[in-house]
Design a protein around this nucleic acid. Structure first.
Length: 555
RNA sequence: GCCCGCGUAGCUCAGUGGAUUAGAGCAUCUGUCUUCGGAACAGAGGGUCGGCGGUUCGAAUCCGUCCGCGGGUACCA
């Protein structure tokens, strides 16, 4: 609808003035019409005429040209042209679907990125929720989406954890791992990491041992060692970590088809970087660097002076592996803000030898999760806000408010609270507000959906909009429903799920306003109104679905 | 120092070139309706859109500058 009108208005501009204009229809306030365009203002400058005059001429042409779909064309203010759709056109828009702009394309979405041997914190929950929503949008647009994860199974944090594990096991005794009950493994690992971290800071000899263990972990990967006692401990506990991640992801409704451990991307990255010395990367002080300063960025080390790959090289390797595994057309990577400039350097360097991969890549970043009224979280000493703490806080607040334990409500509350914010800035999470049934919350929308379903459940008849002539309140609701595809298309194009959250809330408000004054069942307008309610319930459910939020029929 | 991001009502946030009064939610205050799930609806108060300058017919939105906060700035991720 929108695209078609834009196209035909552009055509009219060409016919009348012989110039090409980019027509963008916007949604004005309802009193002004259904669509609005400022082309007359743009054209006025180009053809050197008064905007009002240009507007009048264009409006006259549009009245004829768009007669089938548009009942009113008016000029307002400095020269805006407002269009009012016919009821038929307005209703036709209700059955439109979001654009399949990614049909036939393969997309890799990487997000969450927890490190094995460490706990999932609030930030991981946030990127998982946002990443899922974005992946859903890409999928909804027809893309073949692969959700993948990346994390450090080698590195100093592993050395710290291994140190504490060995101490706990009384040496390299893999058999003793069997004594740890399955349901305590993740907590046991989390404690090991904290103990290792503390020892590293407080105890010089421990620090030396940890550095040594870190090297042994790298070495066992190089040697493909799965049999030595040390290796058995490493592989077993690494798997415990992945099991813990999987379990958590299942709890929040996420699923990743692949984990890329750094141990796999490191060799590929190392080789790729070495292949491009000295044309892209150069040696400097014994390290291999990329001089981003040439491009207004900064210098970063890709291979350190010990010959080990840094995160930069591992990321290069990751992109190569994703390409090898999926041959993607588009790649989306979601990380924290602190990696924005870092990633710019990595991608700039890669652009020197694989520009097509870089062009296909979008790096999105988000801020931190903070608890309302709480202090900032710190990764030191383990006093961080864990992912599960956030969900538990929501569950607790929900229990206090409603007396119920309802996973759909709790998860819906947390996810919506995260997703309603534009991605990029830090967000403040307030458990009480998130589970509230009033205001702009997930449960409010879930309830709005359940309420609509219960109306529909009262009759077999699902109504019809065929040849309907709308009353003013019905028209307002239909107008809002018609924005759905535009909003989804925008959210998909910008990779910004919050547009959907904002819209769904407005839609629910619009519906509640309608419902307050208009009877549905046993009314002479029942047929039309039922169909509107059905369309509303479907859109609410679909929109929440894109956000990864359940929309139960009953609550 | 340099680079990047952010600064909108008491609080949490939309809006990122357009439309006489800058929008929501929470909180505060006031109403409506004998309720197709009232977990509703309507309304009021509350803002120099961080400050100043500029571009434009038009700026919260673009540019410059200053202030404040956060992040990055060679062998962490």
């Amino acid at each position: 609808m929108k695209e078609e009108l834009e196209h035909r208005i552009a055509e009219a501009c060409r016919e009348l003035f012989g110039t090409d204009v980019k027509v963008e229809l916007t949604r004005p306030e309802e009193q002004f019409g259904d669509f609005s365009t400022n082309v007359a203002l743009q054209l006025a400058g180009q053809v050197d005429k008064n905007p009002r005059e240009v507007g009048e001429a264009l409006a006259a042409a549009l009245r004829e040209k768009l007669a089938g779909q548009v009942t009113e064309v008016s000029i307002a203010g400095p020269g805006f042209i407002n269009l009012r759709l016919s009821d038929a056109a307005l209703l036709a828009a209700l059955s439109e679907q979001p654009a399949k702009s990614l049909a036939g394309q393969t997309v890799v979405a990487e997000y969450s990125d927890p490190n094995p041997f460490k706990v999932l914190h609030a930030g991981h929950l946030y990127t998982s929720v946002v990443g899922d929503a974005i992946a859903n949008l890409l999928d909804n647009a027809g893309g073949e989406v692969h959700r993948v994860n990346f994390g450090g199974d080698v590195g100093l944090h592993v050395g710290k954890t291994m140190w504490a594990i060995l101490k706990e096991l009384g040496g390299e005794n893999p058999d003793k791992l069997n004594e740890i009950p399955e349901d305590q493994r993740s907590e046991w690992l989390a404690e090991a990491y904290i103990n290792g971290t503390n020892a590293y800071e407080d105890d010089e000899s421990a620090k030396t041992q940890i550095i040594e263990l870190n090297k042994r972990v790298y070495a066992l990967h190089n040697d493909n060692d799965h049999d030595s006692p040390f290796a058995q401990i490493y592989w077993t506990t690494r798997q415990w970590s992945y099991d813990y991640f999987d379990k958590f992801y299942a709890r929040i409704g996420s699923h990743f088809e692949k984990y890329y451990p750094e141990s796999e991307t490191a060799p590929v990255g190392l080789q790729t970087v070495r292949e491009h010395v000295p044309d892209v990367y150069q040696e400097s002080d014994g390290a291999i660097i990329f001089d981003g300063e040439k491009y207004g960025l900064h210098v970063r080390v890709f291979i350190n002076s010990e010959g080990l790959p840094t995160y930069e090289a591992k990321d290069i390797g990751l992109i190569m592996l994703k390409k090898r595994d999926y041959d993607f057309d588009k790649s989306v990577v979601i990380t924290g803000n602190e990696q924005a400039q870092y990633m710019a350097v990595v991608l700039k360097s890669m652009g020197q030898f694989a520009p097509e991969l870089v062009q296909a890549t979008s790096h999105l970043t988000h801020g931190l999760v903070k608890l309302q009224g709480g202090e900032k979280m710190s990764s030191r000493k383990g006093n961080i806000l864990r992912a599960e703490d956030v969900i538990d806080a929501a569950a607790h607040a929900n229990k206090e408010l409603t007396g119920q334990d309802n996973d759909d409500t709790v998860l819906g509350a947390v996810k919506y609270a995260f997703l309603k914010n534009r991605m990029g800035g830090d967000i403040v999470y307030d458990p009480k507000e998130s589970v509230s049934l009033e205001g702009n919350s997930g449960p409010y929308l879930q309830y709005a959906h359940a309420r609509a379903r219960s109306i529909l459940a009262k009759t077999e008849n699902q109504g019809s909009l065929d040849n309907a002539e709308l009353q003013p309140d019905e028209r307002s609701l239909a107008r809002k429903l018609g924005e759905y595809t535009e909003v989804v298309n925008r959210a998909t194009g910008e990779l910004m799920p919050h547009h959907i959250a904002t819209y769904l809330y407005e839609l629910a408000k619009a519906f509640n306003g309608f419902y307050e004054h208009n009877r549905v069942i046993d009314d002479e307008r029942q047929n039309v109104r039922l169909a509107l309610v059905a369309n509303y319930a479907d859109k609410l459910k679909a929109g929440l679905g894109l956000l990864g939020i359940a929309a139960p029929d009953r609550m």
